[in-house]
Structures are given as structure tokens and as C-alpha cells.
Amino acid sequence: MPTSQQPETPGWPRTSASLAGTLIALAATADDASIIDVHLTQAARLAADTLAAVDYASITAWRGQGYTTVAASSELALAVDQAQYADRAGPCLHSLETATPVGVPDIAATMSWPGFYRSAHELGLHASLSIPLFAGSGVPIAVLNLYGRDTATMAPLIAGVRTVYTGRPPPTGNQPGMDTGAHQLLTGLAQALTVRATIQQAIGVLMARNERNAAETYRQLRLRAAETGDSLIDTATALLASAATPHSHPES
């Protein structure tokens, strides 16, 4: 968790939003919306502030022709990110490229990413977790990187995120290592995945009707939401409700 000695990203937004709410809002936001980076920066700050196992957090994204850190709770997190960009290899890049969480429960034992290992080891970090984040299209747009000094407290967090991404419900109750912040993260990820599934289902309905590919159909859904002033998730939910009504057809 951050201390007063850890520099924050300039312009770091201070809001009362929760980590879970931020992840859910991101999943329901169009990829090209101007608020995307606000959500991403907020997710990094809230993760560093609320997750007891996490000492530093950052956001990695592909922008233009390379990887960049959109937000970081500390210069230490930024340094570990940049070591991975320099090598073009590491858990955060692998997570973004494969759209799967990548946990490193013991950095000292990793052999796959030497640049990541050296940087993290020099800074006293012993475990990490990179989590793909997505917006309205359902395609990962960034990765939330969580870095910790204690392997024992990071292990339940890594296991919990893996559970959620396999489609199972997040751990409940007072399980070891599952503090309030961890429950917020896992609940937010689970609900964000539900939002994504709803939007993808609506895209599937439109694809079947209009015989367009997924990218074109997402843009169609995005345009419909913009025209009505509704959110993507509300537009998708309404479309699915209409499609489920007997003798009705979703609008093209």
C-alpha cells in the first residue's frame, strides 16, 4: 500500500468511487470515450489504496506504436513496467497480449522474464499480478499491474483473480488473505465480466440479423447508444429484452 514517501502520478484524480464500481464502469464505457483514462487512472489509485497485499499499482496500455504506463502509484511501479517494455517481455505484456491474468507468486523463482526479474528484485518486490481490463468492445485495452513485497499475502489475491477469470464466483466470507479491498477487486472483476458478456450477447444478436462482423456490429451498437443517450450496457440490455419478446426483432 502507498506511503507518504511514494510519489503519485501528477494530476492523480481524487474521487469517492470504489474499486469495484470503477471496474464495472470501465467495462460499460465505449473504448473511444474520453473518460477511459480517468477510469484507468482511478483503478490504479484505488488498487494501491485499498488492497492490503499490494504495495504499488500501475496501468499498462498499448498506445500508438508502443507500450506505455498510463498511471502509476509510484516511481517503483513505473520502473518495473519500463523494464518489461525495454525487453518487450514480462507479465504485464503477456497479460495484455493473451487477455488473461498473469500471476507471479514468487518473482525470485521466475526464469521467463529476466528484465522484469532484475528490476523487481532490485526494488524489493517479491510477487506480482497483471489483470487485463476491457471496455465496451470486450477487447482488453489495458492491464492493471499489482506489485507486492509479501508473497504470502499476494498468493490469495492471485488465486482469487484466476478463479474469477475462469467464470467461477469470487471467494466469499472471511477466507485467509481476502480483506475488504480484495473482495472489492474480485467483485468488481466478476461484475465487469458480466457486463462484457451482456454486451457481447447483444453484439451476437445484431450480427445474426445484419450479417456483419463483430467490429462493425460493435460500432453499430456504440452509435445506437450515442444516438439515444443511453449507456452501452443499457442499450445492450434493451436490445436483448426486445429480442426475447415473442414475434419481436431487434432493430437493425
Rank of each mutant, 00 (worst) to 15 (best):
183 H>R: 14
154 M>R: 05
210 N>S: 14
183 H>C: 07
170 P>Y: 07
150 D>T: 00
150 D>K: 04
182 A>C: 13
167 G>Y: 10
166 T>D: 09
177 G>M: 10
199 I>T: 11
190 A>V: 01
162 R>T: 11
198 T>P: 01
157 L>K: 04
153 T>Y: 00
196 R>M: 11
181 G>T: 08
186 L>V: 08
158 I>K: 05
158 I>R: 05
156 P>N: 02
175 Q>T: 13
162 R>A: 13
147 Y>E: 13
191 Q>N: 10
210 N>D: 15
167 G>W: 12
195 V>K: 11
188 G>I: 04
151 T>G: 01
208 A>S: 14
153 T>M: 06
162 R>W: 03
156 P>H: 00
208 A>Y: 09
157 L>Q: 12
209 R>L: 15
145 N>Y: 01
151 T>A: 06
208 A>I: 00
157 L>N: 12
170 P>D: 03
174 N>V: 02
187 T>L: 04
206 L>G: 10
145 N>E: 10
204 G>D: 02
160 G>L: 03
146 L>W: 11
157 L>G: 03
202 A>P: 14
172 T>D: 08
197 A>D: 15
208 A>F: 13
201 Q>Y: 04
191 Q>E: 14
147 Y>V: 02
200 Q>N: 15
196 R>A: 09
161 V>C: 06
197 A>P: 06
198 T>Q: 14
152 A>I: 00
203 I>D: 02
185 L>K: 07
153 T>V: 09
210 N>L: 15
168 R>M: 12
200 Q>H: 12
161 V>Q: 05
153 T>P: 03
165 Y>T: 05
192 A>N: 13
197 A>H: 14
188 G>L: 00
146 L>D: 09
185 L>D: 09
167 G>Q: 09
146 L>A: 04
154 M>C: 07
177 G>Y: 06
203 I>Y: 11
163 T>N: 06
147 Y>T: 01
168 R>T: 09
167 G>N: 04
197 A>S: 15
